[in-house]
């Protein structure tokens, strides 16, 4: 599958949230470097580190060995801990070096989208896992049997609420026919954003079933349409879809009622459904119909109560859908 320039333009749109994650990562790399260099210089009293730190101006002017011995000796640490931290330093630097690559995923044709996303988040999550291990090591609470696995994979299910807030967006290239997004609901928490770049033909409303009150959902043709999505301080999912598909935006901040939030820019004819293996035409049609229904205000809106809206047929459906999603995404106790 060739990567297209929508991916790079998407990355540009998401520069804000990506850079918050990357700078937290960079800070962590520097934190670990700092811890390591104090530990290392405490371990071996080599003047090399000290000499380097003093810079070239010191050459010939400062007796670096003497300088090194005079500085207060810091606490000693065992070699295994230093080695573990070195591993973490490499891991974090590696993630930092991947730049935007860290947030890009390509789903092999025929693979399960949900699993690919889960694996990618688990990979990114190693940054959080590593940070935890650093904390545990510093406070002498680290245990191999419990914590070592955090460095191999740190699945989304284990992420704390603050980690979910800072998680980077994921940009996923996926073949249109593999675009089964329902399974992604469990990852739409905190500020997690997922952008699916659909290649080739795809169902007309693949994200319709993810619309729920607090989730920003967009189907768009072009990455420029993602600005508000990127800025939203909550979870969101977007799909960049071809001509044939529906274009819509569900912006949780746009109002209390589902038809205020959901703006449909283009709704293909119900017969615009395509032939896709495993996705029946009637199911695709059902998705379109759902979209239409959520987006439509009831004919005579009760002027008094916004709460009454949820009693309307569309409102009821949204509520039900939301309840279902919340149940699936229930992350309490993690």
């Amino acid at each position: 599958m060739q990567s297209d320039d929508r991916v790079s333009r998407t990355l540009k749109e998401l520069a804000g949230p990506i850079s918050s994650f990357r700078s937290a990562l960079a800070s962590a790399v520097e934190d670990v470097r700092g811890i390591l260099s104090t530990w290392r210089s405490a371990q071996s009293d080599s003047g090399e580190q000290r000499r380097a730190e003093l810079g070239c101006f010191a050459a010939g002017r400062i007796d670096v060995e003497r300088f090194a011995t005079l500085l207060a000796v810091e606490e000693a640490v065992d070699a295994a801990t230093v080695a573990r931290l070195e591993g973490i330093f490499d891991l974090l630097s590696d993630l930092a070096d991947q730049k935007d690559g860290v947030v890009r995923v390509k789903v092999e044709p025929g693979a399960v989208l949900r699993d690919a996303v889960a694996a990618a988040l688990g990979r990114i999550g190693r940054a959080f896992g590593a940070a935890r291990v650093v904390g545990l090591s510093r406070s002498h609470r680290y245990e191999d049997s419990l914590h070592q696995r955090f460095l191999r994979e740190y699945p989304y299910a284990l992420w704390s609420s603050s980690e979910r807030q800072i998680a980077p967006p994921l940009v996923v290239e996926v073949a249109g026919q593999d675009l089964r997004a329902e399974g992604l609901a469990e990852f739409l928490d905190g500020r997690q954003k997922i952008v699916l770049v659909a290649q080739g033909k795809c169902p007309p409303a693949p994200l319709a079933r993810l619309v729920s009150p607090g989730v920003f959902v967009v189907q768009a043709a072009e990455p420029v349409a993602l600005a508000a999505f990127a800025a939203y301080q909550g979870p969101g999912i977007a799909a960049l879809v071809p001509e044939s598909a529906a274009l819509f935006t569900h912006d949780p901040q746009a109002g209390a009622r589902s038809w205020d939030r959901l703006k449909v820019a283009r709704l293909p004819q119900e017969d615009a459904v395509i032939r896709l293996e495993g996705l029946s035409a009637s199911w695709q049609r059902e998705c379109l119909r759902q979209l239409q229904e959520i987006a439509t205000a009831p004919p005579a809106p009760a002027p008094a109560a916004a709460g009454a809206a949820s009693n309307g047929p569309a409102g009821a459906q949204v509520e039900r859908l939301a309840a279902w999603l919340l149940k699936r995404a229930d992350l309490q106790g993690l």
Binding site: E30, R33, I35, S37, T38, A52, E53, G55, E75
Partner: peptide
């Protein structure tokens, strides 16, 4: 031209618990 060295750079603030 200076040959830049990462070790010249100030470390992140130490945030370990104080003994």
């Amino acid at each position: 031209r200076p040959k830049l060295d990462p070790r010249w750079q100030v470390r992140q603030p130490d945030q370990r618990p104080v003994p």
